Amino acid sequence: MNITLFYHSILSDWNHGNAHFLRGVVRELEERGHQVQVYEPENGWSLQNLIEGYGKEKLEELKTYYPNIRTNFYTLESIDLDAVLQNADLVLVHEWSEHELVKRVGEHRANGGKYKLLFHDTHHRAVTERESMAKYDLTHYDGVLAFGQKIRDLYLQEGWTEKAWTWHEAADTSVFYPHERKDFEGDLIWVGNWGDEERTAELHEFLINPVKELGLKAKIYGVRYPEHARKSLADAGIEYGGWLPNYKAAEEFAKYKVTVHVPRRPYVEALPGIPTIRPFEALACGIPLISSPWDDAENLFTPGEDFLVARSGEEMKEQLKTILNNHFKAKEVADHGLATIKRRHTCAHRVNELEKVCEELGIATSKIYLTPKEQVLNEE
């Protein structure tokens, strides 16, 4: 297939957790012989923050992990959709795209576009910012890919679309995999952005306080940490590492004995079944994971086996002691989680699901499932 993807960014993962999954999907599609073109807005906020804070050299570093990564920059004023979409078979528009772009691509599809068109939602805004999401004009879209059943159902209930599929995020195991563990640099690592005060109390209860009270050596990576957050980390003796390129997370996980998952409040309270990308990343890297409570309503994992669960700060301390003091239990949990990722939650699994959606939409199977001969021709 000729596939065109409109993303907020594929080059930058600064405060843009979806980049992991989006990069992995592109890699998997290309490995199957499909022709993929990515478009992202010129001067997008994630890329601009990355360059301003860390320099363009980080984009060169990215290519050592994703050698074939490339993008096309556009502006709403200059993009020529006739040229961009001329040969497309499938078009995906990610929900961080501008309302105007979403509308114009839909209108282009209605005015003779031969491709199938899907909207891809990977955020909680359909619940928390419903008015804004309702303004996306999906009239001429063939459907929605939603990263959880609750979001999928909402699109149908609100009449925003007539067709929707659940398409969870997953791990890109070409980059996220267990690295050799030699000498540990500390006990606990956490990778996550502070965000919009959506989990401040939870971070104190399940992360900062347990680390302080147990006297653990810990390091936290992420962006948008306000002064009060950095002070709390310092008071707990936690090292703050700032932004960590997403593709380097696997290397950092290998330096520590345990990590935790602290989901944002909207996912816990309003969006059961959606874990976000972080547990996929950790489990794929073979590090034991302990999670604060969230409802695995869609049975993606086996809580208690793929990862341990702590229902309170006190329980978190006990679970941390279990993992740190019992090598066999730590290995058992890590191995079980990694096996679940390999069996069910890789980008290859998600592309398999996308291919089924393409079949349902009526794209020719000869385009969806390329023969080995066609793959060779495409690669040449």
Results as ranks from 00 to 15, higher is better:
N246Y: 06
G113R: 11
W165A: 05
Y221I: 09
A126P: 00
E353W: 04
Q375D: 00
A334I: 03
D306E: 09
V258H: 00
P293C: 11
R104S: 13
E28P: 00
K342C: 07
L81D: 11
Y155A: 08
F301K: 11
T75N: 14
T71R: 09
F73M: 14
Y369D: 01
K217Y: 06
E95P: 00
I238Y: 05
R70H: 15
W45F: 14
H108C: 10
A236H: 02
K321A: 07
R224V: 12
Q86A: 15
E198V: 11
E107P: 02
C285Y: 03
L50C: 10
M133S: 07
V376N: 07
V333C: 01
E107L: 15
W167Y: 11
V211G: 04
L370V: 05
Q86T: 12
A330G: 12
F21A: 04
L117M: 07
A170Y: 01
W190K: 05
G113A: 12
P266C: 12
W165E: 08
R23P: 02
K103F: 13
V105P: 01
A282L: 05
G304R: 05
Y7D: 11
H204V: 15
H204M: 13
Y141T: 06
H99V: 14
V38F: 09
E197V: 10
H345E: 03
T322N: 13
E95Q: 10
Y369M: 01
L216F: 05
L207D: 02
A282S: 14
T71N: 15
T200C: 06
L118Q: 07
V309P: 02
N325C: 04
N326K: 02
E251H: 13
R109S: 08
T365W: 03
E31T: 07
T365H: 10
Y247I: 00
R224L: 12
S291Q: 10
Y65P: 04
L156M: 10
G186H: 09
R32Y: 06
N193M: 08
